[in-house]
Each structure stands twice: as C-alpha cells, then as structure tokens.
Amino acid sequence: MEHILTLGFLATTIGATWRLATPIIFASIGEVVSERAGVLNIGLEGIMLIGAFVGFWTMYETGHLPLAFLAAVLSGVAAGLVFALFAITIKANQIIVGAAINLLGLGLTSFLFRTYLVHTGQGVRIAPAIDIPLLSGIPYFGAPLFKQNLLVYSTLLLPPIVGFLLYRTSFGLTLRAVGEHPKAVDVAGRSVALYRYGAVLIGSGLAGLGGGYLTLAHANQFVEGMTSGRGFIALAVVVFARWSPAGSFFVSLLFGMFYALQLQLQAEPSIHIPYQALQAMPYLATIVALLLVRNRMDAPATLGVPYRKA
C-alpha cells in the first residue's frame, strides 16, 4: 500500500496520464470547435477508428511517418465531410448521423482489416520519444514530462492555438456566432453552412489525428475496435469542460489519470477492489461531473439544431 505513496508511482502516473489523455485531447478539442458552431458530432469514436486504421495502413505500406499522420488526419476529414453533408447540407438529425458514422467506422475498418491486412507481423515504426536535454534527467519527473513523443508535446500547443482561433480571429468569432445566433450571421451575409462545415472538418481532422496517435505514436498495431470508447469519453469531456479548449485539455488529463490509475491500482496486490469497479471509474466520474456543472448554460444555443434559412 505504501508503494502508491511514492514519488516513483506518482511519476509513472503523470507520464501515463499524459499519454493516455493525448488522443482524448485531440478529439475533444476538435469537438469543441465543432460544437461551438452548433454541430454535435457523436461520430467521434468511428472517426478516430478510421484515423487509426488509415494511418496504420499508410505507414504499413509506405513506412513514411509524416505521410501516415497526414493520412490519418485526411481520413478523419473525409469522414467528417460525410457527416457534414448529412448533418449540415441535408439537415438530418446530428445525433443519428453521428451514430451512423460510428457504425460505418467500426464496420469499414474491421472489414478492410480482415480483407487486406490480417497479419501485420512486427507492426509499424512509431513516433519516437524525444528526449529534452537536461530536463529529462530530472529525478522522477524528468522522464514523464520531458521524454515523450512529438504528438504528446503538441497537446500543449493545441489549447492556445484553438483558443486563439476561436476567440481572437474573425473566423472564430463568426464561428461561435454561428453556434449562438445563426440567423444574425446569415443576415450579415455570411454562410452559416460554410462555417459549420469548417468547424466539423477541423473537429473530425483532429479526431482522425487522435486515432492516428493510437497506431502511430502509442501502440504500433491496429486492433479492431481499439479506440475502446475514447471517442465517447471525448464527448463527455467537452460538456464537462464547458466548451472551452483549455478546459478540455485539463479534463482530458483528468480522464487520462483515471485510465492510468485504473491500470496502476489493479497491479497493486495489496488493493482488493474488483477491477471492474476501477474500470467503471472514468464513466462514473463523468456523470458526477455533469452534476457539478449543473445549470451552467454554457452550451452553444443552437447545439444540435440544423439551421434553416427563413
């Protein structure tokens, strides 16, 4: 029991937390952009799977890592385009279209994996950890904080970049207005649909990248259904973080910590909690979190509502 009170344990938790949070950070911050424009995309899970699969397949065939990441992002964008076509242009119910994207993501990736890949031997080469000189040598906390791969580090840049985009650019301003008062934007002569398309494609591209992280920067193999609910967690993160990019970053870390602790506590022979209870922790925490942010009406006013011109 005393083992879990050591610095070593804490350092491990920090490293694992950040790595496990990374795909959720990408997906949730992308979803913030999408939801700020009034589009609720619950197809994140499917889009992440597509990104994981396409990224892996590209790497497997070409061995070119940047190209593989690009493929992961683009496949996410492509899936987002399908979503946007139905949810924005055709104005179908966003939740239903998202559910369909999830089915398609699982079905297509599994079908193609079984048809074309199957035995992938050694897997692929993944993004290497980058050792930051001096800092990575700090006892205990050097490795978890300063010896991660580029994608993990890049999560630090994502909240400021997306924050700047949303709050400091006219694009972002209009985008948020589209989520709150689409009619006003429309009257001002700008296309609501165009902004929503932009938001969804940014969101799905980031979700694709989050999926690509799983096969190109963490594990080095594709496994059917390997996202294991991370896309759904990202949805919960957005609500918990009240549609803020920086908030999503921290809430994702919180979820990453739950994942990490779950695995660490199971491995402690002195702790006798059914492992299923530990595994259920992040999901219970989400529900509790929703109760804590009660009555905060920060949700974009037209979230989930298709815009129809008068």
Partner: peptide
C-alpha cells in the same frame, strides 16, 4: 496482475506494462 477487460485496447495494455516496468 492486471485485467484489461477486453482484447482490443492495445493502448491500455502498453501503459499497464510501462507501469509494471516502472514498479
């Protein structure tokens, strides 16, 4: 000992192993 609860989450398996190695 750790159970993943599934046979698909390679990411969790990797982190579980990393943690065990650190311990």
């Amino acid at each position: 000992q750790v159970y993943l609860g599934n046979f698909s989450d390679a990411t969790a398996a990797k982190e579980a192993a990393v943690n065990m190695i650190h311990s």
